[in-house]
Nucleic acid binder design. Sequence first.
DNA 1: CATTCGTGAAGACGAAT
DNA 2: ATTCGATTTCACGAATG
Length: 312
Amino acid sequence: MGETETDDEDGSGGTETESEDVLVCPECGAEAVESERGETVCPDCGLVIEEERVERGKEWRAYSSEEEEEKSRVGAPTTQTMHEKGLTTEISRGDVEKSERRETMRRLRKWHERARAEGTERTLRFGLGEIDRMSSALGVPDGARESAAVILRRAQKDELLPGRSVEAVASAAVYAACRQAGIPRSLDEIADVSRVEKDEITGTYRYLSRQLGLEVPPADPVEFVPRIASELDLSPEVESRAVEILEETAGIGVGKSPKAYAGAAVYLAARLLGEEVTQEKVSDVSDASVVTIRNRYHDQAEALGVDPDLDT
DNA sequence: CATTCGTGAAGACGAAT
DNA sequence: ATTCGATTTCACGAATG
């Protein structure tokens, strides 16, 4: 509901109707110009007349039918993909009359603005652009893209950028966002579209994930089961049996490759239920080698106390 | 004959100094 | 930034059905 059209039309001593385009500075009367970022500033005194309008762009969409993972989904209400949400600092006019001082004043203001704009905003803008570019190249959904933008913003706010290339941070942010969203897009593909080496991305990613304390839960093997099972044309019984296996052997899976673990469970479940599937096919669809599938599947069989060859 | 199994060397990853 | 421990992967040959 709320059409937030609360216009500031309250003409306090308002002269007459002001045109949409031309605004005059209430202090010095000069006509204001528009800066690069869409603000309207007085060219003489540097007063910001109209700040950048707040755009609440895309709404924040609920992610998926996920469990109570909502707590890690802390997004900002306004879209984070845009730079400069409207918080600016400007040097206001003191009372200076002499044109000499005024000129110094202007220069100072310019320097200040430039320093701020170029120091942080420009890199941020560039990083956001990189995030967008890589995201579309990889087909990353919007939710994860926004998460990446949030991560980049936080990194910049915490002054984590100095000494590090923005591209690396942007790449790491995309990677982290993908992992948080449970998207299989992994390091190699990101390194492909990024301009930095994979080593730097991983290093930056580690650094970020520690400094920012961003939680990347180790992928739950159960997540992979439906995809694997359906891609192998296995029955739903196998699928649910695989999930059972994963739950019962939850202890020994830590530290191992989750995908391989899921694949092994599917394979074991299929074998227990008498459905024919080769290890190689399982390894194909679960992105794990045959031998790893084999190892995990043996682990699970042993942990369950069943012998791999007993058919029901 | 196909599938599965076991092993050792090589690379990759994460943690710690 | 490098070193270390664990894990995964690859490549081979053997065993099993």
